[in-house]
């Protein structure tokens, strides 16, 4: 395998969980809800995915279980923030705390067991094309799912009535309500979609990335996903660019180290974060872009008057 190809493959694996979690959060935020519990939902997805795959021996059942784990936690969040109108920032942080603890409890008996790996699909003939074959046609199903989700969310958000409703709920919940849309129901759905995607991202970690269960195995990736959403200015396509950019900088930090230049590893490790800040500054500087796309009601509680 040639070195460039290896790097590209590594970048794709590193970026996919970020992309999956972030696309869900993007939809959630588009509906005006800020869920800071991505890390918690992700780690629940990881443990549920691992447990189910290990028990049944089938990684696809694991994926479903991962989605379920994420959705279950998201549902909790939805009840609190939507039905009971609690503060979203605080609830999201509490959700992360709960997810990390609960996943540790569930996973206690699964530590130190070899997992079931989600196999690459290796599309016949196409995946044997030199260089681009393995990159484009030799990935596992979740990588394709992440790419498909980018296009699907772009389409749904900007070309369909459903997308219009989601965006109008996120931009001005009062007028959306006045128009007769059920703001709370829309937000419930978007929060659960976010949970499903985070669960998928978690399952990717424990089934494809590193097929095993270890406590806290998300290691802060949920937070990075949250950052990517802001970075993307709530546009799915830019989100994909951001995720792959972050993955690339992340991997290049390791790559440069292995070449042995003697740059302190702490500086290389901090590079992805520095780059994210710089990229954010550049994008945010463009006021027309951000102002148009930022969901105006993000983080605000809505309680219908009657």
């Amino acid at each position: 395998m040639d070195a460039t190809q290896a790097v590209i493959l590594t970048i794709i694996t590193a970026s996919t969980p970020l992309l999956l979690a972030a696309i869900g959060e993007l939809v959630t935020e588009r509906s005006g809800v800020l869920n800071l519990g991505v890390e918690g939902m992700m780690v629940m997805g990881a443990v549920c995915g691992f447990a189910a795959a290990y028990t049944t021996g089938n990684p696809y059942i694991g994926i479903l279980a991962g989605v379920f784990g994420g959705v279950a936690l998201a549902f909790f969040f939805a009840i609190l923030t939507q039905t009971l109108a609690t503060n979203q920032v605080a609830t999201g942080l509490a959700l992360t705390l709960l997810g990390l603890g609960l996943s540790g409890l569930i996973g206690e008996s699964f530590v130190g067991l070899p997992g079931v790996k989600l196999q690459q699909l290796s599309i016949p003939f196409l995946s044997t094309i030199p260089f681009i074959g393995p990159i484009l046609f030799g990935q596992d199903i979740l990588v394709y799912a992440s790419v498909a989700l980018i296009f699907a969310t772009t389409y749904v958000l900007f070309k369909t009535r459903v997308g219009l409703i989601i965006r109008s709920v996120g931009d001005n919940h009062n007028s959306a309500h006045a128009l007769g849309y059920n703001v709370i129901a829309v937000r419930y759905a978007c929060i659960m979609f976010g949970g499903a995607c985070s669960g998928l991202a978690g399952a990717y970690l424990s089934l494809a990335y590193t097929p095993q269960w270890i406590e806290n195995m998300t290691a802060g990736r949920g937070w990075v996903a949250l950052a990517l959403v802001v970075f993307s200015t709530w546009l799915p396509k830019r989100l994909a660019i951001g995720a792959y950019l972050f993955g690339a900088v992340w991997i290049m930090g390791l790559y440069v180290q292995a070449l042995g230049f003697g740059i302190p590893s702490q500086f290389l490790s901090s590079l992805p974060y520095v780059v994210t800040i710089i990229a954010l500054v550049i994008i945010s500087g463009n006021k027309t872009l951000t102002r148009v796309n930022t969901p105006a009601c993000i983080g605000q509680t809505f309680v219908p008057d009657r």
Partner: peptide
């Protein structure tokens, strides 16, 4: 950090 360790392994193998 399993993810980062895995990435490092891939980078090393790639080199």
């Amino acid at each position: 950090d399993p993810g980062k360790e895995a990435d490092a392994a891939k980078v090393l193998i790639g080199q």
